[in-house]
Design a protein around this nucleic acid. Structure first.
Lengths: 301, 301
DNA sequence: AAACATTACTCCGTTTATCGGAGTAGTTAA
DNA sequence: TTAACTACTCCGATAAACGGAGTAATGTTT
């Protein structure tokens, strides 16, 4: 027995004054209305309505239960309206994650502009240089740099980022600019564990994969710290281009081995589902994808 | 989709932390729990839970809807508990009707004793000398004197009342005591319309029906008024024995034609249904039946 | 008083919804 | 890397609910 339907039926019977009228209003057959009421009374072990063929009258218990039913049905309708209202205009909390440096450079500003447009949305931005578990950590949207390993997520591609090897110009003046990736095995190589936690760096030569074992004494999980260490040190480093862009412009780092660059890394806006996503997730994903695509167009005219 | 069941399911999933655990608690199969949740989300056009094979996490909408569900389910349980509590101990209002004189003489006292026993019951006693429509008039229990014509009601018989013809002794001294019912057609007969609204009075002679046409100038719907008019007048009256018992004891009325008395009238405690009757109706009916049976035993030892 | 219209209710064959087992795919822990 | 556990889908079977037809009762109209 559908108790909710039975409650609605009971309320309609009383309001309309007959089972026949209630059946019409509910667009159901009279027998089903009769059964609904009888089932509810059985479930409650209580007679709610005294009735003859032409009259109905609430029992005392029925009167009290009726008011409770009205309250409950109103609450249910309100709960559903609340969800519907949330769907029309983006509102509520969004939890967004992005890699630290990329987030600071591009995502934060875009979020600020987004929030100016959509005043009823709040965004919590988590800048992390590790792979997050979106479901477990309650993340709505992630800016993901790298291949997407999670098949249950949906990725909206927005661009690609070059992987570059850099060194301090003074070092290069001293050692000479390496002409092939294999030469790196003879140099101190700093490792940013967020991108390349292992000791094998990958390159491409004329379309073919090329791997080089590297070694070095400095490893860090923080991009900025690693890029600055590279700019101040005697070593080489493998970074994403946006991570070193400011230091390159300042002349503190120089990109080398450009003819052997590995495949660029895709950048995506990632979210758990397409189905039944909330309005603010959908609106935010569309907005951020558009903003980031413009960022990449600006970076590569 | 059973939305109530779906709400309960949703709450259990969150509380237990998995669909599998919720299925166990609800004693349902896992596929049915999966479908329940999915149906609810479809109905609401809203994702309530993000989930992978090993994790679940509430969405923001899901969190809000969850709290509303808890409130709604609590209200429903409370509404049902209220009915159950009412059923264990008789409480609430009872509306009882009885014929005026009989009610005054026997029913009111019994009700007083009943209310001393059951402190949470209120009784509204309606003393009426007419047939009431119990459903229409919201009557829970009626003390009915006469044959029950209403097949939807249930009658608990408690006794029988003689129908007697009476007259003022002075009158009888003047006209002589009638020896046969037919003689009444030559006398003034007062009519109490609550018992015999028509002009035909019925008698029984040696098991056979006997009808007599009577006439008179005084008719009234109030028993006491009619019996007192009979005691003060020159006429005969047809009454129920309990109606004239005090006046007979005082010598103000005398019963005649006792050999021709019609069949006694049954007295019953009447209520609309046996099924799903409230506790106080059941308890009251049992009580009143017992009390009235004792009244009849006392009247006919 | 009788006839008529309307209402509540029951029965039964049909339809629809829901069920759970089996199996698949994915994720996390050992 | 393997095993265990979880969410989910599919499909044949089962159960619940359906509405039409009919019955009985009640109140209104003639």
């Amino acid at each position: 027995m559908d108790k909710l339907l039975a409650m609605k039926t009971f309320v309609q019977i009383v309001d309309r004054g007959s089972l026949t009228a209630a059946a019409e209003v509910l667009d159901r057959s009279l027998p089903s209305v009769v059964r609904s009421l009888a089932s509810l009374e059985d479930a409650l072990s209580t007679r709610l309505l005294n009735r003859t063929t032409r009259r109905i009258a609430l029992t005392d218990e029925g009167r009290h239960y009726l008011e409770r039913c009205r309250g409950i049905l109103a609450d249910i309708e309100e709960a559903e309206l609340a969800l519907t209202a949330q769907q029309r205009e983006p509102s509520g909390l969004l939890r967004v994650t992005a890699p630290v440096t990329f987030g600071q450079m591009h995502v934060a500003q875009s979020i600020t502009r987004f929030l100016e447009h959509f005043e009823r949305v709040q965004i919590e931005l988590l800048l992390l240089d590790r792979v997050v578990n979106m479901v477990e950590e309650g993340i709505d949207v992630a800016i993901r740099i790298g291949q997407l390993n999670d098949s249950s997520m949906i990725a909206t591609p927005v661009g690609q980022i070059r992987q570059v090897v850099c060194a301090n110009p003074k070092l290069l003046k001293h050692t000479g600019v390496p002409e092939r990736p294999e030469e790196l095995s003879h140099h101190d190589c700093l490792r940013f564990t967020g991108i390349a936690p292992g000791t094998t760096w990958h390159f491409v030569e004329k379309g073919k994969q090329l791997s080089v074992q590297v070694a070095g004494s400095f490893m860090c999980n923080q991009a900025i710290a690693t890029t600055e260490a590279c700019a101040a040190s005697i070593g080489f480093g493998l970074f994403l281009s946006y991570q070193v862009e400011p230091l390159v412009k300042e002349g503190k780092l120089k990109i080398v081995l450009e003819d052997f660059e590995p495949a660029p890394v895709p950048v995506s806006v990632v979210y758990p589902h397409a189905k039944l996503m909330s309005t603010r997730v959908r609106v935010f994903v569309d907005w951020m994808a558009q903003e980031l695509r413009q960022v990449f167009r600006d970076a590569n005219p």
